[in-house]
Amino acid sequence: MTASPFLRPPWDNLNRQHQAVSLGMWIFLVSEILLFAGLFAGYGVYRHLYPASFAKASAQTDIVFGTVNTAILMTSSLSIALAGGLARARLPRLAWYCLLATLVLGAAFLVVKGFEYREDIDKHLFPGPQFALGGTGPALFFSFYWIMTGVHAAHVSGGLAAIARLLIASRNEPAWLSGGGSEEATALYWHLVDVIWIVLYPLLYLNGRTHG
């Protein structure tokens, strides 16, 4: 069996390398979940201490931007999963375009986020001297709002970089999409970024808009 270009030392079997790469990514994903767990813990403690003002504050976030972004990210998760499936089904061209769609959707997410941040700043929703809402609870909510969405946006950017690298590499060497496991790892990472947002969405946008 001729050594495939993706085979890297110390592996001598592409399948084993592929499994190792995805195992490694799964372990890294666990550490990422623990990273966000620290934030969710802090958010949870303060929401328990100040339930009323957390609800009032999160009602100030823009539900339209939040919902649109949720839709965008979930679609991008679908497209990257399709890309993997198509690549395994030996349709590299189609797979490449699905991957491109993921990149575009991811970028769109950041753009929408940018507009949302601008609006938030205009509405003085950044805790500071001219913070729009009084009391301590709202300032704490928005501290977590900015940090959680900021750290998440950083992860989105990291994911986009990985997808872009994959797109460039597989443009003339389609085997990259099913080769040594880097495609699957990138997809796994992107799914995590999506799942984290799916948890952030209710915490930041739906809270305070449910019962009356």
Partner: peptide, 19 residues
């Protein structure tokens, strides 16, 4: 210090923060 963090039932939240 922070009356706005929890208003007594039956009253308007008009007491200022003294923090």
């Amino acid at each position: 210090l922070h009356p706005r963090d929890g208003t007594v039932a039956g009253y308007a939240p008009i007491m200022p923060d003294y923090a």
